Simulated scan of single mutants.
Amino acid sequence: SAKHALRHVENGVDIVVAQGHEAGGHTGEIGSMVLWPEIVDALDGKAPVLAAGGIGTGKQVAAALALGASGVWMGSAFLTSQEYDLGHRLPGGTSTIQEALLKATTADTVRRKIYTGKPARLLKTKWTDAWDAPDAPEPLPMPLQNILVSEAHQRMNESDNPDTVSMPVGQIVGRMNEIRPVADIIAELVSGFEAATKRLAGIAES
């Protein structure tokens, strides 16, 4: 939130990452489109702001810069890169986790405390469904929850069943539909950014 960003700057941080609700892992309640400019305006140039949460295309990078960010911070979009080693690999060469990510849609994430004890966006699987069952226990506070479930996470992620993995990922997972080199991901981000900014320039001239 803006108050957190201000507190960080007061304590000497060099860069603030403004992470919207769409992001994977630990995330708050405010969506990126609202959060990014709110933090940019609150800091008023005191520190550069990197936009995070739901970014996976060049047009989204352009939107972040248009809202005042100095750059972007991306995580989930690189989980299906060829270079990313997510452990146990299936006969086809992809990891169990990547197989789960590839078949997920934008709606296939949930925000729960079951990973660490604090709210985190996770891939929706049989594991998250089990914790949502009426007879499931309440998650323990951080860091106890992670201690409780970490070995179970390792076993599931090393299995051959993508339906039971435990993996933090953002809502951008719906666009992560193929395994490809990081170079291709970056090239598409650049070309998408150029196309978006060119389109906006055309609108401004008309």
Rank of each mutant, 00 (worst) to 15 (best):
Tyr84Cys: 14
Arg89Ile: 09
Gly53Lys: 02
Met74Ser: 09
Ala66Ser: 13
Leu67Gln: 13
Ala69Cys: 13
Lys46Ala: 15
Arg89Lys: 14
Val61Arg: 01
Ala66Phe: 11
Ser76His: 03
Ala62His: 04
Gly75Leu: 01
Tyr84His: 14
Thr80Asn: 11
Thr57Gly: 10
Ala77Pro: 06
Leu50Asn: 08
Thr80Arg: 04
Arg89Asn: 06
Val49Gln: 00
Gly87Leu: 13
Leu50Pro: 12
Val72Lys: 02
Gly68Ala: 07
Trp73Cys: 14
Val72Ala: 06
Ser70Val: 02
Gly56Arg: 11
Ala63His: 08
Ile55Pro: 08
Ala51Val: 14
Lys59Ile: 13
Ala62Val: 08
Glu83Lys: 05
Gln82Glu: 15
Ala64Gly: 05
Thr80Tyr: 08
Trp73Glu: 11
Phe78Thr: 03
Trp73Gln: 15
Gly71His: 04
Lys46Gln: 15
Thr80Val: 14
Leu65Glu: 13
Gly71Leu: 09
Gly58Ala: 02
Ala66Arg: 11
Thr80Leu: 04
Ala64Val: 13
Gly75Glu: 05
Lys46Pro: 10
Gly56Thr: 11
Met74Gly: 03
Gly54Pro: 04
Glu83Pro: 11
Gly75Met: 03
Ala77Thr: 12
Glu83His: 07
Val61Ile: 15
Ser70Phe: 06
Pro48Ala: 08
Lys59Asn: 12
Thr80Phe: 04
Leu90Gly: 00
Ser81His: 01
Val61Gly: 00
Ala69Leu: 07
Trp73Asp: 11
Val49Gly: 02
Leu50His: 11
Ala66Asn: 08
Ile55Thr: 10
Gly71Glu: 10
Pro48Asp: 11
Ile55Lys: 05
Leu67Pro: 06
Ser81Asp: 07
Tyr84Ser: 14
Lys59Phe: 09
Pro48Trp: 01
Glu83Trp: 06
Gly56Ile: 07
Pro48Cys: 03
Ala51Met: 11
Lys59Cys: 11
Asp85Leu: 09
Thr80Ile: 08
Ile55Phe: 03
Leu90Asn: 01
Ser76Gln: 02
Gly54Asp: 06
Ala69Pro: 07
Ala77Phe: 07
Gln82Lys: 13
Gly53Glu: 04
Ala52Cys: 12
Val49Met: 02
Asp85Trp: 10
Ala69Gly: 02
Gly58Tyr: 04
Ala64Asn: 08
Leu67Ser: 12
Tyr84Met: 15
Gly71Pro: 13
Arg89Gly: 05
Gly53Trp: 07
Leu90Trp: 00
Ala66Leu: 14
Gly56Tyr: 06
Tyr84Val: 15
Ala47Glu: 02
Gly58Glu: 02
Val72Pro: 01
Tyr84Asp: 10
His88Pro: 00
Leu90Met: 09
Arg89Asp: 06
Ala66Val: 14
Ala77Cys: 12
Leu79Glu: 05
Lys46Asp: 12
Leu50Arg: 07
Ala52Trp: 05
